[in-house]
Nucleic acid binder design. Structure first.
Lengths: 209, 209
DNA sequence: ACCTGAACACCGTTCAAGT
DNA sequence: ACCTGAACACCGTTCAAGT
């Protein structure tokens, strides 16, 4: 739940090493990027030996999974907060969600990348990582289902939700990866792009595209 | 142990080691995925010692860049081929491009991933990697600019192009990363999703969204 | 010029031993 | 139960030496 940064004088038993390791990994991602994330450095930052993590995580990959899960939880919070503050109506809500998704990714680029590709792990339904990611997606799909005019079949709703997610995610990732240098530096143009994307999704659902 | 697929006695000088290393790396990505790509294995597969690559690439990252550039060239070819076979009109062309993008990604998932995130390298304008990626994007943007009704300003065209790219890219990546398990196994539903995405982009450009 | 083999530093992982 | 330190295998990189 909470992570306490640890000073030098520590007891032999760490208070909550699992969460301390997750927090250390996230801060390394923020400060040094993807390449800087190695298990020995994470352990060092948490104040334990390089072998200590193996008491709590099966291997490096298991820690990466935990870090990714934590990221999805943060993203989910951000999306919920955005919804709470957004005006009524599907269009405003979609825009708020898109802004939240973009905002999380641009604020935490290395973590965002790690959440979606840093982990070479089973992502099958039933795993905690899958569920954490799905919870974020369901916010979006639930929103579309809720605001849809009575006629739209659920398959159509899922299809539009997949496209909306793809659009927000693609824009975020391409910006993070430096593929849109003309956009990256212009916050106003990013805003107009998200706005247009939200309008496109809205139109697709409400009109009979 | 040692997989020596080169029975023919090789001369001391390799014919074209740079390209052999690139090809070996791509085949490793296809057969073993991202995690299996290490420099020593690439060298082994190319039939040289693990130090030989350093005569042609400054470091591992430089080889990864070359592999990514090769990927973008293949993607560009695939997009051009799709355009050549597509029917006339913006809608059919957009759909063809989207199918080509998705198709390349799903056929070469590890390579696709490596092209966009495996490389921690400067991606600034002027580099060969940036140009290779930009050439693919310009196919899409040029298409939209060409088919636009006279009224649309170039900024609007670029905005729609960014969104179209984001949508196709996001869908591809999310499928590759296993984030859409409901879609991944259903080729017909993927097709409908790409179709709807292309329609949305078309509508955004042609209508005054 | 191009390549090899030894060498080094670093990281993931394991294990016997310590608290 | 939790953690440490030594140990091992493997990978990226360098370099003197070979062709």
């Amino acid at each position: 739940l909470t992570d306490a940064p640890n000073p030098r004088s520590q007891p032999y038993h760490h208070g909550d090493l699992p969460n301390a390791l997750i927090a250390a990994g996230i801060s390394i991602l923020a400060e040094e990027g993807t390449a800087g994330l190695d298990l020995r450095k994470v352990a060092r930052r948490a104040g334990v030996s390089h072998a200590a993590p193996y008491r709590h995580f099966a291997d490096k990959n298991a820690l990466l999974v935990a870090i990714a899960i934590q990221g999805f939880a943060q993203l989910e919070t951000r999306m919920h907060d955005a919804l709470a503050q957004a005006g009524p109506g599907l269009q405003a809500t979609l825009l708020a969600l898109g802004r939240a998704y973009l905002g999380f990714g641009l604020d935490n680029p290395a973590h965002m990348r790690e959440m979606f590709s840093g982990v070479s792990v089973a992502r099958e339904p039933g795993t905690a990582l899958y569920d954490a990611a799905k919870r974020c997606y369901l916010i979006l799909e639930g929103l579309l289902a809720q605001h849809q005019p009575g006629g739209a079949p659920p398959e159509k709703v899922a299809r539009v939700a997949h496209i909306a997610w793809s659009t927000f995610h693609g824009l975020t990732i391409l910006l993070i990866e430096g593929q849109m240098p003309g956009l990256a530096a212009r916050a106003d143009e990013i805003e107009r792009t998200v706005l247009l994307a939200a309008q496109m999704v809205y139109t697709a659902l409400v009109q009979g595209l």
